[in-house]
Design a protein around this nucleic acid. Structure first.
Lengths: 257, 257
DNA sequence: GAGGATACTTTACGCCATAAGGAGATGTCG
DNA sequence: CGACATCTCCTTATGGCGTAAAGTATCCTC
């Protein structure tokens, strides 16, 4: 299943995302709300975590709360906005502060690595987030906080603004992309009751069968693949670490250090 | 709108993606096929290019070909597989060869930059591709060819396998991610009849309104934003170029050069 | 010419998001 | 207290979706 995230009105999402939580509620008549935006977002995340993105419907979320689908529309303008809120809530799991200790100065590499690992782990805890089209930055408080966090970590590197901007984009996209790859393999493996590695090897076996001239057409790819086969273990994590190292070397190259 | 790409059976996609085009078709009875997988894929791309991912339905594709939705199922197992085929077809637009000339050796930076620019441009020509969940590598011939192309470009850099793998992932994800950001801004701008820059500024104005303490909460983000405001022009393209430069510096750091 | 395979259609099912309107609860104001 | 406005939540309905099932017309092989 592929999810095309809605072009839902960004303005309404923004207001909800940044909505001051304790709206005064003075002089309001009518029955007391039995739900809340927070509760709905939590229910949505629970559904998506448990059943996957394909199973996330307004009905399912409402049902989990003992309501009908339509009841949700009292709190949330539509599904697209709910997705935005879920996304930002997930990112709110990231630690607010850098790891303590005096290590930050001069040790920005460690700080950025910690940030990246946290984000990577967060994505893997909620793989459905990776299926929400990234073609629509949500700009929720948690997302911005994560960016600020990254900027703080990068601060000691002393990059000029242009490079800093590029580095942030590259780092974020890299984490998201590698997490997506890992999540996919895990998901496919889980769905078919097969280990990660078996799944990859099945896949390449099938490829070899369908394209017998594979090694001739893609010699470098073939070489890279077999080189990787030599080093077993948690391949995804390795790709993540070495890719990150490349990125950080690039950042370092800009510091003049 | 966000699209959650289907978990459609990858095996069937693979067979279609690599299917030898001119299946012999000897000794087959029944009426001659009036369509072909290729025609259907083309129609799907035409629909998605013109009307966007949200408008891509089996009915719409069939209609464009003068058929019903169900007619497509003779050629393609389902919508998820059609999406896979469309994805790979789009990547087939990428140039097959590196730019000619003897510049490749020693000038891998230029070659990789050219590769990245091509991929970036391709994504922007078909922004709906970015809405197809990347959480499912298609492994079609065009995608693999693009990877092989990148590996060829990187070859002169002489990276060890681990680093090479990381660099490829980082580069690919970076291009995709930045293209997504650009496409989003363009799409939102086009949908509301507003220029790119107006849209961004509207967005940040609204943010400032909703979160008056923004500069205090996100000082570095604020600083970065205003630093960027100083340099007008094609901001997205700048972010792309400088981010790519950071990445390439990282690659260079691994060459020992 | 008969029979079987194939391309394509019609119809139908069960989903989906959500618009519209109604029921009952709760508050304010006379 | 009673009238009324307001708010939550429900039922119902609309128009989409992907696609299963079954029917029809076409063409090839025998």
């Amino acid at each position: 299943m592929t999810v095309y995230a809605g072009q839902g009105d960004a303005h309404r999402s923004l207001a909800l995302l940044w909505g001051h939580p304790g709206e005064p509620r003075t002089g309001r008549s009518g029955p007391k709300p039995g739900l809340s935006v927070d509760a709905i977002v939590s229910a949505g995340i629970a559904v998506a975590d448990a059943e996957g993105m394909a199973a996330l419907s307004m009905r399912a979320v409402g049902e989990r709360l003992g309501r009908t689908a339509m009841a949700l529309y009292t709190y949330v303008p539509g599904k697209a906005e709910l997705l935005d809120l879920m996304h930002d809530r997930v990112l709110a799991e990231l630690p607010a502060e850098l790891p303590p200790g005096p290590a930050q100065f001069d040790n920005w590499r460690a700080a950025v690595t910690a940030w990246a690992e946290e984000l990577y782990a967060c994505y893997l805890r909620h793989p459905w987030v990776l299926q929400v089209s990234q073609a629509r930055p949500v700009l929720g408080p948690a997302e911005l906080a994560a960016m600020e966090h990254l900027l703080t970590a990068l601060q000691p590197a002393g990059l000029p603004p242009g490079r800093l901007r590029g580095a942030v984009a590259a780092l974020w996209q890299f984490v998201r992309g590698t997490a997506a790859t890992t999540a996919d393999a895990r998901g496919a493996a889980a769905a078919t009751g097969v280990t990660d590695e078996e799944w990859w090897s099945t896949r390449s076996a099938r490829l070899a069968e369908l394209a017998p001239d594979f090694p001739r057409r893609f010699p470098l790819l073939t070489a890279l693949q077999s080189a990787a086969g030599a080093a077993p273990g948690d391949e995804d994590r390795d790709a993540f670490r070495t890719g990150l190292a490349v990125l950080l070397d690039g950042v370092a190259a800009g510091t003049g250090a």
